[in-house]
Each structure stands twice: as structure tokens, then as C-alpha cells.
Design a protein around this nucleic acid. Structure first.
Length: 267
DNA sequence: CTCCTATCCTGCGAGC
DNA sequence: TGCTCGCAGGATAGGA
């Protein structure tokens, strides 16, 4: 569910409501997320002032007083939003702020995770380059591809190389770039890599402008769905005609994930 | 190293 | 209608 554009949309919608506020209460009713919440989780969060809300890849980072960090990953089905979003059944954590605002962490599949650290969270050390950072250049991408035999789509989704792309956006980027998901990274031409680089930023920018993609349960910080799913070129469109050449879109499994492409437009 | 598979968990739609 | 099966936006341990 949440890839970079969805997490960025959550960040943008939450930021004005949380930055500068103090966390007054934390209620945990389910600790069994992807990694269990530690015993001291609620106590280490309560009383802290939120100084900034950042995003790296698919991670949300609440910078707290004294260098402490509250790290949130939404997994496949997680959301962090104000109450009244229609969700209730899997509300695992409530965080109340000094102005009375409450943020509810909801996650039916419990693939998400949260932690509070006094030093930089360990998850970030193994993370690759964020596509919106200046380090994400055509040269960087070319370097990643140079010696790798794996399919380009699997490379794009490897969070230790590039942080933020998931199953939807890697398919959409490769469609726009005219490159098949199965192409081995090391076989890509310079101009193809340049196209993938440029279109990574373009697709993500378009998706953020649309508030992300809501397929079933993604909601932003205000409980609102995104609309980019109506503009998918290939994702979830198996059998439907390509918007560009009318050839039926095909699907095949790559690294255990369904991948969509147009056999007419993508080489 | 590099790459792939299975696994964690709940919900939902397709097909019978 | 009601049941079972497979699949779903992710990360990661473990094996080839």
C-alpha cells in the first residue's frame, strides 16, 4: 500500500497539525506489529514535543525534543490519521497531542512498525538513496545497474538501493520509460537508464500531486483517499488495452510480486 | 556477494 | 447464499 507518494502525502497532511505540539498521552492496545512494540514505547513518546516531521523512503520520522526520533512504517495496510476516518477495528495505537488532537495508528495486517530511539534508527542505516535527494542521479542509477543481473523492476524495488519505490510505482515508471520489468539491469542502455531516472521523479511527483493511490484502504492524515489509481497505465490493468497502443496489458510474477507491462510499448 | 522464496497477517473478490 | 482459494501497497530471514 503506502509507497513514497502515500507516505509523503501523510507527512504533508499531518505536518501542520503536529509540529510544535507536545505528545500528552499514548494508548497502546496492540503491540504485535511486524516487530513488537517495546515495553517502554508509550513512556518514551509521552511528554515529548514534536519538532519536525520528515520522510525518508517509506519511513515517517517524527523528530522529538532532545534528538529522540519516533519512526513509523505503514507496512501494507497501515494508516496514521485523525479519528473518524471510518476505521475502527484495527486501531492499535492512539497518540494524543497538547491541543487535544489524536492520531490513530490503524493497521489490519500488522505489517507496519514503530519505534522510538535516542539515536538514529537502525532501519535507516541500510536504506538506499531517496529519489528526491540530490544523490539520486542518472550516474548513480547507472552505477547500480552496471553489474547487476537482476530484473530492473526488482532493482527499483530494492530499498537498500533506492528508498521509496514499491510494486505500483516501479511498474508505472517502467511503462513510461518504455522498458520491460524483466530486463536485466546490466543490459540497459544509457538512454534507457536516463529515462528511468527522469521518469522516477516525474511519476512520483504526479502521484504526490494526486494525493497518492488508494486501491482499498490507503488514507492520508485527514482520512482522505488519493486519486492516482485512476491514472495507472499498467498496474492492475491486466487484459485491458494499453492507453497508448491498445495492446492488452500483461502481468507476470517477478521476485514474488505481480508486475504489469505493455508488450507493445515496453522493450 | 547476489538473487529468490517463503513467511508474517487480515480482508476481500473470484469462482464454484 | 456460502464456502474456499488466491492475492494484496512491505520487509526480511534463510537458502541456493
Amino acid at each position: 500500500m503506502p509507497e513514497l507518494p502515500e507516505v509523503e502525502t501523510v507527512r504533508r497532511t499531518l505536518s501542520p497539525r503536529v509540529v510544535g505540539r507536545t505528545i500528552t498521552a499514548v494508548a497502546v492496545r496492540e503491540t504485535r506489529l511486524r516487530r513488537a512494540l517495546t515495553k517502554g514505547f508509550a513512556d518514551r513518546l509521552a511528554g515529548q514535543r514534536i519538532v519536525a516531521l520528515r520522510r525518508v523512503g517509506k519511513y515517517l520520522l517524527f523528530d522529538l525534543d532532545g534528538g529522540r526520533t519516533w519512526l513509523v512504517h505503514l507496512g501494507m495496510s497501515g494508516s496514521l490519521a485523525a479519528p473518524g476516518a471510518g476505521l475502527e477495528r484495527h486501531n492499535h495505537v492512539d497518540v494524543t497531542l497538547s491541543d487535544g488532537t489524536t492520531l490513530i495508528y490503524n493497521d489490519p495486517r500488522r505489517f507496519g512498525m514503530m519505534r522510538v530511539d535516542d539515536s538514529p534508527p537502525p532501519e535507516l542505516t541500510s536504506l538506499g538513496v531517496d529519489p528526491f535527494s540530490s544523490h539520486y542521479s542518472p550516474e548513480y542509477l547507472r552505477d547500480l545497474c552496471r553489474r547487476r543481473a537482476k530484473p530492473i523492476k526488482s532493482l527499483l524495488m530494492d530499498q537498500t538501493l533506492i528508498a521509496g519505490l514499491g510494486n505500483i510505482y516501479s511498474s508505472e515508471i517502467l511503462f513510461r520509460a518504455g522498458v520491460r520489468p524483466t530486463r536485466r539491469a546490466r543490459t540497459l542502455r544509457r538512454r534507457e537508464i536516463e529515462a528511468i531516472h527522469r521518469l522516477t521523479v516525474a511519476v512520483l511527483t504526479d502521484a504526490i500531486a494526486a494525493g497518492g493511490s488508494s486501491i482499498s484502504d490507503y488514507r492520508d492524515g485527514n482520512g482522505q483517499p488519493g486519486s492516482f489509481q485512476t491514472r495507472f497505465d499498467v498496474y492492475g490493468r491486466e487484459g485491458d488495452p494499453c492507453r497508448r497502443c491498445q495492446t492488452p496489458i500483461r502481468a507476470r510474477v517477478l521476485s514474488g510480486r505481480s508486475s504489469f507491462y505493455c508488450p507493445g510499448c515496453q522493450r
